[in-house]
Amino acid sequence: MAVATKSLHGAVAAHDDHAGHEDYATRLRLNRLGMWLFFISEAFLFGALLATRFYLWGDTRPELDQMVGLIVTSVLLLSSASMYVADTAAEHGQWRVFSVAAWTTMILGLVFFLGVVIFEWGLFPQIYEGHLTPWGDKYGAVVFAMTGMHALHVLSGIVLIFIMWRLARKKHFTPEKHWGIEAAAIYWHYVDLVWIFFYPALYLIGTAHH
């Protein structure tokens, strides 16, 4: 039997009986803390990229398609809303709603991702002729570094949501126990939050360099 005890300063300690089934509340608390620590760490990763941007560009910026920037940003913000719906639905056991909202999020995420790859990167010149290359100059290099690192996170977020959707379909989660979904949701919000810093740094701050 597992015992959770409240220690003097309010933190909770757990002792499982070596059989490996500690109680769910304790595990959840550890998981949540672990996730937040991971976010703190990642903040330094994205912070380093921002520092690079300001160090190399100063108060200039590349000329990027403002329309593309606005659209992908809105799409990503919208996806945070749908992910919120998915998370809440899981909390209430509304698995159909969850499923629809999860797919909405994945599709919006994919739209964002394709927007970056096709329009910002110009990877498919048949569709859209981009004018930046990663090796051209400091503008191309930093744009690709920042959007690339962020896109990698978006992509992994989509994979994570997909895994959770499949598990949910297999009745893996309950309203009480759905840490996986919660984790995917806060991860998704976090990745969005990062973009809220990246978007102005790439598109808005400084004078465009011709």
Binding site: F44, P134, A141, V142, A145, M149
Partner: peptide, 25 residues
């Protein structure tokens, strides 16, 4: 370790990419 390590990680990644793709950081 949790925080500062990210700086050398991304720094060395950028260095690697500058060498292999020519991204001028």
């Amino acid at each position: 370790q949790l925080t500062a390590t990210q700086f050398i990680g991304i720094d060395f990644l950028m260095m690697s990419f500058e060498r292999s793709l020519g991204m001028p950081f």
